[in-house]
Nucleic acid binder design. Structure first.
Lengths: 238, 238
DNA sequence: CGCCGTATTGAGCGCTCTCAACGAGGGTGG
DNA sequence: CCACCCTCGTTGAGAGCGCTCAATACGGCG
């Protein structure tokens, strides 16, 4: 018997929520932000920005889901993260003075806030709180990415898919079912690009998981049925 | 014909040197550091710390080479980075309040500096320079790790090995041969754990590369012969 | 000289990919 | 409203890559 707590702790090493909380900033800093933040609506399937582009500013996802991916020049796509509401992003290449390493597109209709590069940097210069949040966040993300590399380098499709489902379950949780199982509503193609396998292979593995009663599907949605066994299968326990 | 410059730029997206330069700190901050820094000698094959341990402080590698790896509980090992002289590390789990996600061991006899957790945090609190260096460094590392995940998820052994050799060539460069090719002096076993394949497979791929005149070996050392073709083979060009 | 850890080579198997055909479902235009 | 199309998903078969097991070779060190 594996405790929920233990699973949760292990999973936290494999995904991240943005550690940045704009609303936690002191009054005067919050004002700078509010003065410059602009609303953006992004329709499903639309691209927010592409890899190689200049990072114009910082985004905050208010509602909807985004996919963060890289397009390889043999045409293959790797989805690296799924962003859910609350995620703050786009600041990393600004800080390291690089171009966007990834592309981002909407999986559903999305609402975002946008703040221009220069205002973000102005805010960062004045805000120790923000600077500290960034340090903590980035450090944790380093751990997560490191662990993910290990998984991709060492594990087979079943294990990677199991882990992907556990991560997605966290991302698709709503406030109402924080403890229950989420409705994972993601196209098979996207799922296969997230797991890092072909669509065909994903389909087969999905069937296998269904046979083993690890998951259940309803239309195109996926629900986890046996959390623990999926966790054991993912082999991420240390 | 691919320019050296272009290859260099592409490679920079797949590896990192620590962006932290202690000697660039202002006088008074440098004093704090010098007061608390302690010398450590680490013999070849010795472990500096293990994953899961409490992060006691920050290390600076002065000479030698380190491997950063994860041990999976099926016994497999994934080497994530090779650290060369100048690398600063160990601060990330301190900042994110986690345990060490990785183990570190010496590939050669090493000299290090060590500064205790509390003194590092004291220094960080006082130093905007350090704080900014960390932000820049971590942001760049995020890009690097993201790109690496893509490679591990999508590419075959040949491509991964080719990339690994290009990265190692950077790490093993000495000041004397900054432009020429380095002597990559790494056990086959470590190499296979870095590429993420079996020892046998690595050996075969090595032969293949030799046949194609991409590399040359002398004893256990590897030298790159055809930089460009190795780069093309790695398929990391965007 | 012999031993032990490290490296190479070979053979066979299994996982994953690719190619191809078929099926389902949603959107569009007649 | 229905027919059609186009995208997305499923299923099957075959090939190839990479893994594992096993035997042999190398090399440094006592």
């Amino acid at each position: 018997m594996i405790s929920k707590e233990r699973i949760k702790r292990a999973l936290n090493r494999f995904h991240f929520y943005s550690g940045i909380r704009i609303d936690s900033l002191p009054e005067n800093e919050l004002e700078i932000f509010n003065k410059h933040a602009k609303k953006i609506n992004l329709k499903k399937k639309k691209v927010l920005f592409r890899q190689g582009s200049y990072p114009n500013g910082v985004y905050i996802l208010k509602s909807g889901k985004l996919k963060v991916y890289q397009l390889n020049y043999d045409g293959s796509i790797q989805i690296l993260f799924i962003y859910a509401a609350g995620e703050v992003f786009g600041y990393r290449p600004i800080l390291s003075n690089e171009y966007q390493p990834v592309s981002i597109a909407a999986l559903e209709d999305c609402e975002l806030l946008f703040i221009e590069r220069k205002f973000f940097l102005e805010l960062l210069q004045k805000s120790l709180t923000l600077s500290n949040q960034l340090l903590v966040s980035l450090s944790h993300e380093f751990t997560v990415l490191t662990n993910r590399i290990n998984v991709f380098a060492q594990r087979g499709i079943k294990e990677r898919f199991a882990l992907a489902l556990l991560i997605l379950n966290e991302k698709y949780k709503s406030e109402s079912d924080m403890d229950g199982f989420a409705e994972i509503k993601l196209a098979r193609t996207d799922l296969s690009n997230f797991v890092g396998t072909s669509l065909e292979n994903l389909s087969r593995t999905l069937n296998y998981f269904k046979e083993k009663r690890l998951i259940r599907t309803k239309g195109k949605s996926i629900f986890i049925e046996h959390f623990e066994n999926l966790f054991i299968l993912s082999a991420i326990d240390s």
